[in-house]
Design a binder for these strands. Structure first.
Length: 584
DNA sequence: GCCGTTTTCGGCCCGACTGTTTTCAGTCG
């Protein structure tokens, strides 16, 4: 898709313009356009010229540059800028504490072209004597370079959310705080997180700050002010704590949750209404009379907007939707009636069926689908026809003993490298639900991988495609697949796409969820649990669904048992009918 | 470079903290 490439170029143009010291509003225009394009669920190449300039932040000039890219594969202005500034200089902007002004200064006066040059320059004392540079700045630069080399990359939400909750607990126990909550991208439930933002109320902010910077596991204090401090933990995660007055908590939570772009839009709206919005509240100009700030809802109300849930706050159309009262009613964890992708000891899970069932019942579920692997996955001790028959028999027996709960007989059938399924249709027909997925041949061509998924989707017995893109956050990229083709076919054949809630997968992610939703695809949210406690990953899957603007009606496992079974059956019947029509 | 229920020109979000400065620029979120 072209969107990401164009967004990347626009962001780089913005960086280059910053280094040149150009007008900051022009720079912001490029960044805003980049974000607008990056968040779009459909290919920008499909838009008409009118639709293009209707996008927020895209005017005639940038629309022209987009068309130029689509026609020629590049943008002349971008190439010219790149000629003026060596590539490594952009890298300097990634050093924390180093912005465009200093980077430009170093390049202009010392010909520093990359991070290695910079380190050498500091070590050989070349920075001394430059205006505004003293010992402390040199130390900070060296420190930042070493953090950078260690790789302070974004980490999975599933790692940092528990860490954030733990830190909050520690602060609560030791410091005089009232309310305390996680904010930032964790509260927006982004799939990866850069740092941890925490907001608290207190009458003694200095005391709270002192306790915070002295918590165990703090290895470096980045900032230490009266109401705001930042530290780095021993595993390299930055944690920011901000303390505000009780009356400003809502405004501060809104501000601190972001996204930055969402907040900028809100402040623009405020300005147009003759108001001022900051982290302390909404103020009426002139006179600076406070008209809100205690609650987040109050902030949005003051701007004449309905409350916008944190997961939507990306300036990706939510503000426009809010103004037209068209915000989706997002699916919640309480809507989930069961898990449809669960493993047991019969393949690579660690628990017996009855144990997984008991754990599902404590979560208030009405059903769970046992979906062990098939024989193709030798490492997972996958099931062949005879072992599957025995598992089915056992499930039937257990089901007879259950009241108000049902185990669905399922399978996670392997889509083999030639696109065939790992078990014959007559075996799959014995099951209530068939989940199909790819576990091998990731390096095949885009055409081959796409064809494999398409042929699985067309199989009359397949209900769900699990972890459709195969990505593992920080470990493995999504495999090369034409996802548009996959979604179109899924919508046509009524096959659900899984939102796999396993923290390293979160696959589909929010971007693909929005795209699939546009094609009319239905979804299931499943944990892929291999042990009972992993049922709790469901909240991450629901978070992705919410970020993808999904409502209850888009998600099949929000249906009560009877309706779900009916739906699974009608999906198969529909496909069989389609196949017969094709033959005749 | 974008944009308009004040505007087709003249605006464009707001504040904390740091390091260098005697009052502020740079950076960050």
């Amino acid at each position: 898709m072209n969107n990401q490439q164009i967004a990347k170029i626009f962001n780089e143009i913005a960086d280059l313009l910053e280094l040149k010291g150009e007008n900051m509003f022009r720079i912001r225009a490029y960044r805003r356009a980049a974000q607008s394009i990056d968040g779009m669920p459909n290919d920008i190449a499909t838009l008409t010229p009118e639709e293009l300039t209707a996008l927020p932040g895209i005017g005639n000039d940038l629309a022209g540059k987009i068309r130029e890219y689509l026609n020629t594969g590049t943008i002349k202005k971008y190439l010219e800028l790149k000629k003026e500034v060596p590539g490594g200089v952009l890298e300097l902007l990634k050093v924390r504490g180093l912005g465009p002004k200093k980077a430009k200064q170093f390049y202009d006066t010392l010909n520093i072209k990359n991070v290695d040059d910079l380190a050498t320059a500091v070590q050989s004392g070349k920075l001394k004597g430059l205006p505004g540079i003293q010992k402390k700045t040199e130390e900070n630069i060296m420190q930042s370079i070493s953090w950078m080399k260690k790789g302070a990359e974004r980490r999975p939400l599933g790692r940092l959310l528990p860490l954030a909750e733990n830190i909050i607990l520690q602060i609560k126990e030791a410091a005089p705080v009232g309310r305390i909550e996680v904010a930032g991208s964790i509260r927006r439930r982004k799939e990866t997180v850069g740092d941890i933002d925490i907001l608290a109320t207190s009458k003694k902010p200095e005391t709270v700050m002192n306790i915070f910077i002295n918590l165990p596991h703090v290895t470096k204090i980045v900032n230490h002010g009266e109401t705001k401090s930042s530290v780095i933990t021993d595993d390299g995660v930055q944690v920011d704590l901000r303390v505000v007055d009780e009356n400003s908590f809502g405004a501060a939570l809104q501000y601190f949750t972001g996204s930055k772009q969402h907040n900028i839009r809100l402040r623009e709206i405020a300005v147009h209404m003759g108001l001022k919005l900051n982290e302390y509240g909404v103020f009426q100009e002139p006179g600076n009379k406070r008209t809100g700030g205690k609650t987040e809802e109050g902030i949005y109300k003051a701007l004449k907007l309905p409350y916008i849930p944190p997961e939507l706050r990306e300036d990706a159309g939510e503000i426009e939707a809010a103004r037209e009262n068209k915000l989706p009613e997002l699916v919640t964890i309480e809507d989930i009636k069961g898990d449809l992708h669960v493993h047991t000891k019969w393949s690579d899970g660690s628990y017996e069926i009855h144990e997984m069932v008991a754990a599902a019942r404590t979560r208030g579920y009405q059903y769970v689908a046992i979906t062990d692997h098939t024989k193709g996955l030798g490492v997972a001790h996958g099931l062949d026809e005879s072992r599957l028959a025995r598992e089915i028999k056992l499930i039937d027996e257990i089901n007879k003993t259950l009241k108000g709960f049902k185990i669905l007989k399922g399978i996670e059938v392997d889509i083999k490298s030639d696109g065939k399924l790992d078990l014959p249709d007559e075996t799959l027909a014995e099951l209530d639900i068939v989940v199909a997925s790819i576990h091998s041949g990731f390096k095949q061509s885009r055409e081959q991988l796409t064809d494999r998924l398409l042929s699985a989707i067309r199989n009359p017995l397949v209900n769900v495609i699990a972890h459709p893109t195969g990505r593992l956050i920080g470990e493995r990229d999504a495999y090369a697949v034409d996802m548009e083709a996959v979604f179109k076919e899924s919508a046509k054949y009524d096959v659900a796409m899984e939102i796999n809630a396993y923290p390293l997968r979160l696959d589909l992610n929010d971007f693909y969820i929005k795209m699939a939703k546009r094609f009319g695809v239905s979804f299931v949210i499943c944990t892929d649990a291999h042990i009972a406690s992993q049922y709790d990953y469901m909240s991450y899957g629901v978070a992705m669904a919410r970020r993808g603007w999904l409502e209850k009606k888009n998600v099949l496992n929000t249906l009560p048992l009877e309706q779900l079974i009916k739906k699974l059956k009608s999906c198969r019947a529909g496909k069989i009918k389609m196949k017969q029509q094709l033959i005749s």
